[in-house]
């Protein structure tokens, strides 16, 4: 299998790799960088568990070849906020009970970030639409939407 060089920025750090043509972005993140927060649950772009930001846009990392991410900037859940300073979305997910099994959580957070980056004051319906590409089987979505709404309305406890 021929390998091809790529360079990209992931969570603020620069990396270069030699990768095979059929390696997907999700494999690069999980297997080469051990960024295991990004999950895979369908492999077909149907569930959103593998959502990351690529040049500021939410993408299903199971539907992006690693080579296609060449030159781009990737943010994963590990780059959203650190232990010391949780991102407000992360705080809200904790406080509003938006996490159950947690498998969809990283993808949900990344979709929520993409939504708020592009529309800082979404309505509840716009929040619903912003999460439409992320499946959750535990929560029924209500508390996830509550959490995002709390961030929008600045209702987080410090």
């Amino acid at each position: 299998m021929p390998k091809y060089p790529i360079e990209l920025k992931i969570n603020g750090d620069k990396y270069s790799f030699e990768v095979e043509a059929d390696l997907r972005l999700v494999d690069l993140l999980r297997n080469h960088l051990q960024l295991l927060g990004t999950k895979e649950a369908c492999g077909k772009g149907e569930c959103g568990a593998c959502t990351v930001l690529m040049d500021g846009k939410s993408v299903a990392s199971c539907l992006v070849l690693a080579l296609q991410a060449n030159g781009s900037e990737i943010i994963t859940v590990e780059g959203l906020g650190g232990e010391a300073a949780l991102h407000p979305l992360q705080q809200a997910f904790i406080q509003y009970g938006a996490v159950q099994c947690g498998f969809c959580t990283p993808g949900m957070l990344m979709s929520a970030k993409f939504l708020l980056d592009n529309n800082p004051r979404p309505s509840r319906e716009e929040i619903r639409a912003g999460l439409a590409g992320n499946l959750c089987r535990c929560t029924g979505y209500t508390k996830i939407i509550d959490a995002i709404e709390a961030v929008v309305e600045g209702r987080l406890e410090r």
Partner: peptide, 21 residues
């Protein structure tokens, strides 16, 4: 964008000979 092509990963990707991106 790969949103149709890469969906076929498990069925067909192994047999794809090459990509032009």
């Amino acid at each position: 964008g790969g949103t149709d092509l890469l969906v076929k990963r498990y069925e067909e990707l192994d047999s794809m000979t090459g990509f032009m991106d």
